[in-house]
């Protein structure tokens, strides 16, 4: 318990978290502080490019093994399975309609790449470097949850609309293409390639992440301020319980796969996080009847800050205890 509190205290006083908190406070105070849409997009492109490339370079350095394939399979299976758990919890804990509950559940099966990046940064800072291929696992986990959410709706209420265009948009989503593309380029060019662009993707990384988290804080704060009325006690509790439930699946998978301490913590974080980029866009197309204020506020306003502040230190502490790392 002392480890968790110590990690949480360190985490809460890191620049990353403090900039996120600044964004939330600025939004609540109705400050005119904003990050322009194009700048926010550019920051996210930089982060995806950097994390993908570094993951690929790490795989090149350590080689490809069966762990990579098994981790990808486990990631895909968990992404598809977790929405069913989330859906069942939502039906017990909240009064959400079937459509809203399925849409929310889909978000929790998918992942938040910024939470992934924040956890990777925290792990690297503690000398617990995860397996480089976890970047590919993150990319794999983006989409299967969407299919599960749509199946839940079609089974219970009918009316989801899944066309080939939507599949193309999900699978060729810009974030996934950039993440996988950078990963592959990093794996091809290896350490030499990384050294050539290290001054661009290694040194400035933390600063850019701070700026991006400031933006996420602003967006989360505005969401909470304007859509907080949708957060009933049950919905609010779900937003903090579900990451812990999801992380247990990640812990079990990480242990079964024999991942390192960092890998287990990162798998827990992936299973605990909720999407706010790929899945909301898919839900707006396929399930327009679902209320975006509920799933976006839950994902970005409750679960993202929870994972960022308390979740990640908890997952790292548990992974360290369990693996003896």
């Amino acid at each position: 318990m002392g480890d968790v509190l110590s990690l949480a205290a360190d985490n809460l006083l890191s620049p990353l978290i403090l900039f996120f908190v600044l964004g939330v406070l600025a939004a609540f105070a109705r400050s005119d502080l904003t990050i322009p849409e194009a700048a926010a997009k550019a920051l996210s492109i930089y982060l995806l490019f950097a994390i993908g490339f570094k993951g690929g370079a790490s795989v090149a350095a350590h080689g490809v093994d069966a762990g990579l394939i098994l981790s990808l399979v486990a990631g895909g299976v968990l992404s598809a399975a977790i929405p069913f758990v989330a859906f069942a919890l939502l039906r017990v804990m909240t009064q959400l309609s079937t459509t809203d509950a399925a849409a929310v559940a889909g978000h929790y099966g998918s992942i938040s790449i910024v939470t992934f990046v924040a956890c990777s940064t925290a792990l690297t800072g503690r000398g617990l470097d995860p397996e480089g291929y976890m970047v590919a696992v993150a990319a794999i986990m983006e989409a299967p949850a969407i299919l599960s959410a749509l199946w839940l709706v079609s089974r219970k209420a009918g009316g989801s609309q899944m066309d080939s265009g939507l599949w193309r948009e999900i699978l060729l989503n810009g974030s996934i293409v950039l993440l996988i593309g950078s990963f592959v380029i990093g794996a091809i060019t290896g350490k030499e390639g990384l050294e050539k662009i290290a001054s661009f993707i290694v040194s400035p990384f933390q600063g850019v992440l701070c700026l991006f988290l400031l933006d996420m804080g602003l967006v989360a704060g505005r969401g909470l301020r304007d859509s907080g009325k949708y957060l009933t006690p049950g919905v609010f509790a779900f937003g903090m319980l579900m990451p812990l439930v999801g992380s247990c699946f990640g812990l079990a998978a990480g242990m079964l796969l024999g991942l390192s301490t960092g890998g287990v913590a990162l798998f827990m974080t992936l299973c605990a996080s909720a999407s706010y980029i790929a899945v909301p866009a898919a839900m707006r197309v396929a399930l327009p009847e679902a209320n975006p204020s509920i799933y976006l506020t839950l994902s970005l306003g409750i679960t993202f800050p929870f994972n960022l502040t308390l979740g990640i230190p908890t997952y790292i502490a548990i992974a360290s205890q369990v693996t003896g790392g």
């Binding site: 904003t34 990050i35 322009p36 849409e37 926010a40 997009k41 920051l43 996210s44 933006d215 602003l218 967006v219 706010y276 980029i277 790929a278 909301p280 866009a281 839900m283 707006r284 975006p292 976006l296």
Partner: peptide, 8 residues
């Protein structure tokens, strides 16, 4: 402002 997803 600040949105990185087209969803909103």
């Amino acid at each position: 402002e600040g949105q990185v997803s087209r969803a909103g």
